[in-house]
C-alpha cells in the first residue's frame, strides 16, 4: 500500500526491474553522449555575446542602416542591401535591432553562399528571433549583442518573426530577409 509501509521494504530488485534499469541506463548514456557529440560536430548555437548598452547598439544600428539603405519596403521598414558588405575572415557583420515600438529593423537583402555574422539586440524589451520557415529560434536581450553566424544556402524570401512576448504590439513584429544570387 502506498499509505502504509511494509516491514521489510528495503529488499533487492527483482529481475524485471533490473533489466529495465539496464535499458534506462544505456539509453541515458546514449542521450548523454549525443550532446557532446553534437558539440564536436559544430551543431551548437552561437556562443558569441558582447556586452553593450541599448543606447550604443541603437547608434550602431542606425549608422549601419544609414550606410547601406537602398529604400523602404511596403511596411515602411528600411531595406538594407548587404550583398556587397566586405566579408572579412569571420563573415560580414550585419545588425538587426528589435525596437520598443514593436519593429524589427532593417529588411535585409543577403547574398547566397556568403558568410554573415548577424548581430541581434534590443533597445528595450526582450524579444525572440524566429527565422521562418527554417524555424530557427534565438533569444534577444537588451544590453547584450548576440552574434549568430549564418551562410544562406538557398535563395528566396524568409521572415524574421518575434516569438517572445514583448508587449501589446508583439504580433506586429516581423521583417523580411531576402536571399539573392
Amino acid at each position: 500500500m502506498s499509505i502504509e509501509t511494509p516491514k521489510n521494504w528495503w529488499k533487492p530488485l527483482n529481475k524485471e526491474e533490473r533489466i529495465w534499469l539496464y535499458i534506462v541506463g544505456v539509453w541515458a548514456v546514449i542521450l548523454t553522449i549525443m550532446m557532446p557529440y553534437g558539440h564536436t560536430r559544430d551543431h551548437n548555437i552561437s556562443n558569441e555575446t558582447w556586452k553593450t548598452t541599448t543606447k550604443a547598439y541603437t547608434a550602431v544600428s542606425k549608422a549601419f542602416i544609414k550606410k547601406y539603405k537602398i529604400g523602404e519596403d511596403e511596411r515602411g521598414v528600411p531595406i538594407v542591401d548587404a550583398r556587397n558588405i566586405p566579408e572579412g575572415k569571420r563573415g560580414a557583420d550585419i545588425f538587426l535591432i528589435a525596437t520598443r515600438a514593436w519593429q524589427f529593423k532593417p529588411h535585409f537583402i543577403l547574398k547566397k553562399d556568403k558568410k554573415y555574422r548577424i548581430h541581434m539586440s534590443s533597445d528595450f524589451y526582450e524579444h525572440g528571433f524566429s527565422l521562418q520557415p527554417m524555424n530557427l529560434n534565438y533569444q534577444i536581450l537588451p544590453n547584450r549583442d548576440f552574434v549568430v553566424t549564418m551562410t544562406p544556402k538557398q535563395s528566396g524570401k524568409f521572415m524574421i518573426v518575434c516569438n517572445e512576448y514583448c508587449g501589446p504590439g508583439h504580433h506586429n513584429m516581423f521583417t523580411t530577409l531576402e536571399v539573392k544570387e
Partner: peptide, 16 residues
C-alpha cells in the same frame, strides 16, 4: 520534454 532540453535541438523549439 527530452527533445526540447537537448542543447542542439532547442533552437527548433524555443518559444514556438
Amino acid at each position: 520534454g527530452i527533445l526540447m532540453s537537448t542543447e542542439q535541438l532547442n533552437v527548433l523549439h524555443h518559444n514556438n
